[in-house]
Nucleic acid binder design. Structure first.
Length: 204
DNA sequence: ACGATGATGAAC
DNA sequence: TTCATCATCGTA
């Protein structure tokens, strides 16, 4: 078994599309109390630069999106539709607004592997030996109890939310690119850009 | 297909 | 201060 390696800021200060690609198969780890829960990232979306009409940063800096203009490695969390917390990681260099939205993750056979999950109200239940599939940005944050308290915090162990490389190698054949979700407002050019990266189970 | 639900940003 | 909009999701 390969020892897990925590992803450092350098990983995130690279170009956004590259970071998005490389995040597939990495783990997002959330510490709640003395319990750690790790989910493998299966789907992300990139919001890249000031000209990206789908990005919150396309109309300049505001109080909400200011963190996107900082250096990579910090979380950008905002509320969507009044009830869903959206988790992003800022990417790229300072003054270049970019971030990656986490849309999907999976926990493989949690009971078999002895991995615990958060309990309590509003939390998805385990389904026996089956994988837990978090298919949607709102479901992901709800499951991991992530909200705007993480906004502007760095991805690190001390913040109770960080990334790990656990040695899983992803084949290019298992990576699909597709248009981003829910960004029709960005117009024909930017809404069609294939800035959404997904892990597919089957090769090809 | 639609309503829930509240922050955001731009207009007034 | 108002108002339309929104990087969604569960229910129908």
């Amino acid at each position: 078994m390969v020892k897990e390696k925590i992803l450092r800021q350098k990983f995130f200060t690279r170009p956004t599309l590259r970071v998005a690609h490389d995040l597939l198969g990495k783990f997002l780890v959330r510490k709640i109390g003395r319990r750690e829960i790790a989910v493998m990232i299966t789907e992300v979306e990139a919001y890249d630069g000031p000209r990206d009409k789908a990005s919150h940063a396309s109309r300049g800096m505001t109080e909400r999106n200011a963190i996107m203009f900082g250096a990579g490695g910090y979380f950008y969390v905002y509320l969507c539709y009044g009830m869903y917390e959206m988790l992003n990681i800022v990417t790229g260099r300072k003054n270049y607004p970019a971030a990656i939205l986490f849309r999907g993750a999976i926990i493989k056979s949690p009971l078999k592997r002895g991995v615990a999950a958060p309990r309590g109200r509003g939390v998805l239940k385990f389904a026996g030996n089956k994988d837990i599939i978090l298919d949607g940005p709102g479901k992901l944050t709800k499951f991991l109890k992530i909200d705007r308290r993480f906004n502007k915090k760095p991805a690190a162990k001390k913040t109770d939310l960080w990334f790990e490389d656990r040695g899983i190698k992803i084949s290019e054949k298992n990576i699909k690119r597709a248009p981003r979700v829910g960004v029709a407002y960005a117009g024909p050019i930017w809404s069609k850009k294939r800035y959404r990266f997904l892990l597919t189970n089957r090769p090809k």
